[in-house]
Design a protein around this nucleic acid. Sequence first.
DNA 1: ATGTTATCAGACCGATCTGTCTAGTTGCCA
DNA 2: TGGCAACTAGACAGATCGGTCTGATAACAT
Lengths: 190, 190
Amino acid sequence: METRARTSVRERLLAAADELFYAEGIASVGIDQVIKRAGVAKASLYNTFGSKDELVRAYLKGRHTQTRERMARELEVRYRTPRERLAGVFEVQGLIFAEPDFRGCAFMCASAESETGEAVEKATEEYRLWVHSLFLDLAFAAGVPSPETLARQLVVLYDGAGVSAWLDHDATVAKVSAGAAKALVDVAFA
Amino acid sequence: METRARTSVRERLLAAADELFYAEGIASVGIDQVIKRAGVAKASLYNTFGSKDELVRAYLKGRHTQTRERMARELEVRYRTPRERLAGVFEVQGLIFAEPDFRGCAFMCASAESETGEAVEKATEEYRLWVHSLFLDLAFAAGVPSPETLARQLVVLYDGAGVSAWLDHDATVAKVSAGAAKALVDVAFA
DNA sequence: ATGTTATCAGACCGATCTGTCTAGTTGCCA
DNA sequence: TGGCAACTAGACAGATCGGTCTGATAACAT
């Protein structure tokens, strides 16, 4: 039934959208740029996704999945106890900062361009729920007395690390945030 | 020499640009919207600012000045020692979160829309320098052993509080960040 | 061989964008 | 009063946007 290209039209479009939207912003990247990079006809894009908004939704969903899976994988490999992992999140985040095409949190950038509406809003909300539960689950597992408080503090730290690394072009911020996280975890256990 | 309107053309344009750019984003607000809200002719805008980019620069410069002056004023009125002020920054920041039209950090949102180029980049860089020196000066004045380390931690926390309050629509984040700041300050003195 | 389906290439539509330009109006000053 | 400068209103240019549509091509199933 499907034409057998090296990769499907959908995959090529998503890959192109991911690179372009993340690097240059959603609003400022035109449909024509996306299809050109994907090597796909315009009609194929609209047959596959229906609208730019749906392409944006798929782009953010992919970012979310990728981030979540990478974090889970790295945390499991690198650290053993929940308490180690609470601070480890910031070291793993630092790996992302050091990547050459890092340009800040995709959800923040997408949300900053408002107007895009429902697709961005919903994807961002899901992403925020994940961030919060990431820390809350670890705080619970670590057995800290007030997991909710610690989790909220670490969410703030996590957000801030991403912003600082981005705006200051400084990947070493991860060392600072990891140090602060360790201090906050210690205080929470004291 | 100047026409005596209730407010000058420049002031009206800046006020309109400030409201619209901050509320809806820079790229998605057209020149026509700005002049309509300002009640000013298009030619007047281009006579006064020369280009949209210069209007954006003036908008961000105004935001920077306003933020800096408000922070200095509130810190001086509400707190006495540098150590109190280090955590006080986050409570003052929380006042901004609670304002009805709060929509995150204007410099983050502007930077997220890339493409705008030099004007945004330069204004953001100046803003970042101010944020950093705000904490560094207070940390020095407080006599903490490693002021640079504490300052960098608090910058991360400051950035994160702004993002969390914005993305989670939750002004109470300021209590969390202020609490974390106190803990980090205490640890830095220990 | 034929028909179906997916794809491609690109013209086209209506809207919107920044920025320029023309004309007419207002208000100050000598 | 006459002249100058600032201002207003809006047409216009040139580009780009998202999205639709036509027509040709290629691959596959029957």
